[in-house]
Amino acid sequence: MENSPVPEQELLKTLLKPLLEDFQYWFGRSRSFLETERISFLSTEQQSDLLARVKQAQQEVQTAQMLFQATDGQVGIESATLMPWHHLVTECWQIAMQWRTTHGSLG
């Protein structure tokens, strides 16, 4: 069976669409967590700053999703744009893991 190259647009749809959905999911969970829990090992200012950064990232991802949909998947995203989102998700995961460890909760 011959392997034909995947057209660039199909590759974008295959990779970028679910990646943007994942970012929205994790930013949504992080936002909910930061809005409902007091993170004792963060100062109020640190928690507020993190929440503001999550909200900003959510808006950026939503804008990227709208452009992606409006162009029928013909628009990509620079890795320089994706990397800060990735770092922010990682930061939120680390804080959530530390919070769960200090609260003895798995959920």
Rank of each mutant, 00 (worst) to 15 (best):
N3T: 03
N3S: 08
N3E: 05
N3H: 09
S4P: 03
S4D: 06
V6L: 15
P7T: 08
P7R: 14
P7L: 10
Q9T: 06
Q9K: 14
E10V: 01
L11G: 02
L12S: 06
L12N: 10
L12T: 02
K13S: 02
L16K: 05
P18Q: 04
P18M: 08
L19S: 01
L20Q: 04
L20Y: 06
E21S: 12
D22I: 05
F23V: 02
Q24C: 06
F27T: 04
F27Y: 09
G28S: 12
S30F: 12
R31C: 11
R31I: 03
S32F: 11
L34N: 02
L34C: 02
L34Y: 00
E35H: 02
T36S: 15
E37Q: 13
E37W: 07
I39N: 12
S40V: 10
L42K: 09
T44K: 13
T44G: 09
E45A: 14
Q46W: 01
D49W: 00
D49I: 01
D49H: 02
L50V: 08
L51E: 14
L51Y: 10
A52P: 05
V54D: 00
K55A: 08
Q58A: 05
Q59C: 00
E60S: 07
V61H: 06
Q62D: 03
Q62E: 13
Q62V: 00
T63I: 04
T63Q: 13
Q65A: 10
L67T: 11
F68M: 07
Q69E: 15
Q69S: 14
T71I: 06
D72Y: 10
G73L: 06
G73E: 09
G73S: 04
Q74D: 06
V75F: 05
A80P: 00
L82T: 05
M83N: 04
P84D: 07
P84L: 10
P84I: 06
H86V: 07
H87Y: 10
V89Y: 00
Q94A: 14
Q94R: 14
Q94V: 05
I95V: 15
I95S: 03
A96E: 11
A96Y: 10
M97I: 12
R100L: 15
T101F: 12
T101G: 07
T101A: 15
T102M: 09
T102L: 15
G104Y: 07
S105M: 12
S105W: 11
S105F: 08
S105Q: 14
G107P: 00
G107A: 15
G107K: 11
G107M: 14
